[in-house]
Amino acid sequence: MLLIVVIRACLLFPWKQRLMVASVAYGSFLARLMMGPQRFRPPRLGPPPPWRGRGLSQELVASLQLRSALLFGLVLIFVLLMVGALLTEHLSRTELASANQRLRKYALMIENQATLQERNRIAREMHDSVGHSLTAQSIQLENVEVWMATDRAKASDHLTKARSLGKDALQNVRHTVATLRNNPLKGQSLSQALTKMTQEFERTTSIQVQFSTHLETPVPREMAAALYRLVQEALTNVSKHSEATQVTINLTEQEMELSLKISDNGKGFLPGKNTTGFGLQGMQERTVALGGLFELHSQPQTGCHIQIQIPRLGEE
């Protein structure tokens, strides 16, 4: 019964109260043990055997009492430790399950937010590029209708411009669709994909790109895709807003992390007053989702400097 009381106390109380209950239980056991020989001593039916003296009987009883006290004390300690260990393990499992549940909710929230940000970015890019091209094309086609009857040369010139604007809109649509592909690397290594992208960017924008990379080991697939998107977004911002003539991109491996540095010599801006920083916000959120650090430094007429550090976990 005393052991049941101690086990019950372990389930209900913290360690301090558990020890108090165990101490009371042990004291009760000792009291009952000391009172036992006087209360329940069997009646003597005859003279004691000649080989059993009174002193020997008392020593035997005392020895049994001492051993019982020690045994019960050890059992109490064992019960306290065992039940405490089981409760601690149960609590740890419960906390771990709760932490995993919160982590799953957080990951889902980040994923949904990243998806929403990506959709908003694409919608804004479609509006700024494709929408502008189609609006301008519509104006050129209206001019064709105006000059078709009176001046066919001007009508032909406006028609040529409308065709050019249509090609630009189609190219922008293809570029936007390409950003939605699940695997932007297309089986290439990260260095190869970035080299190809920077060369294409330099050819279409006439902005010089100095790209250097130093990676001793392959980059995990998901991290490589994220880094590719980060560089892609940075170059898109440079071509749209910076008025830069040169961009420097440096990707290096430093112990257990990857470092990406992107700098341009454009007009710069005040980060606190930036109103066109949607792409920068997306870059920061993508970096944070990978557990990395995003730093942005810019001032008017000093260009823009971005440094990203992402911890490297796992292999490709």
Rank of each mutant, 00 (worst) to 15 (best):
Q199E: 07
N143D: 07
P300G: 04
S133E: 12
S259L: 11
R44I: 08
L70E: 03
T195Y: 01
I139F: 13
W147I: 07
Y26H: 10
G279P: 00
T252Y: 05
V24F: 03
G55S: 14
E222H: 08
H214L: 07
A224Y: 04
G46M: 14
R32C: 15
I110F: 04
P14A: 14
T245P: 00
Q188P: 02
Q192N: 12
T275H: 12
A9W: 02
P43A: 15
Y106H: 14
K105G: 09
N250H: 07
H175R: 10
L19S: 06
L141S: 09
T213I: 02
T252C: 01
T302D: 06
Q137S: 15
S57L: 06
H241N: 07
A31G: 14
A9Y: 00
L280I: 03
T276I: 05
R18L: 13
M34T: 13
T302E: 07
T236I: 05
I308K: 02
C10K: 02
T236S: 10
P48V: 10
G53R: 08
V21H: 07
L91K: 15
R102F: 03
T213Q: 14
L64V: 05
V83W: 04
K105F: 08
G166K: 01
T179S: 05
I139E: 15
R52P: 04
L230S: 08
A25C: 12
L11P: 06
Q232H: 11
H297K: 11
E59Q: 13
L103Y: 15
A234T: 00
P14Y: 06
Q309L: 09
V219E: 08
L66F: 11
I77M: 11
R67W: 13
R18A: 13
A136S: 11
K273A: 07
G46T: 13
L81C: 10
M34G: 13
R18I: 15
R52E: 02
H175T: 05
A97Y: 00
G268L: 02
F269G: 02
P311H: 03
V288R: 09
R119K: 13
A25I: 03
R119S: 15
L70R: 05
K196C: 01
R39F: 04
T252R: 11
S212T: 09
P271I: 02
V21T: 10
V146A: 11
A162E: 07
G84H: 08
A69L: 01
S129M: 10
M1Q: 10
A225G: 12
S263H: 04
R124H: 11
L60W: 15
T205C: 06
Q140I: 01
A178W: 00
G53E: 10
L194I: 02
A162K: 01
E255R: 09
L60G: 12
A97D: 10
A193P: 05
K167W: 05
A244L: 00
P311M: 01
F29A: 06
Q117Y: 09
F72L: 07
R44Q: 14
T179R: 04
L280E: 05
P271L: 08
L96F: 04
K267R: 12
E315S: 09
Q299R: 12
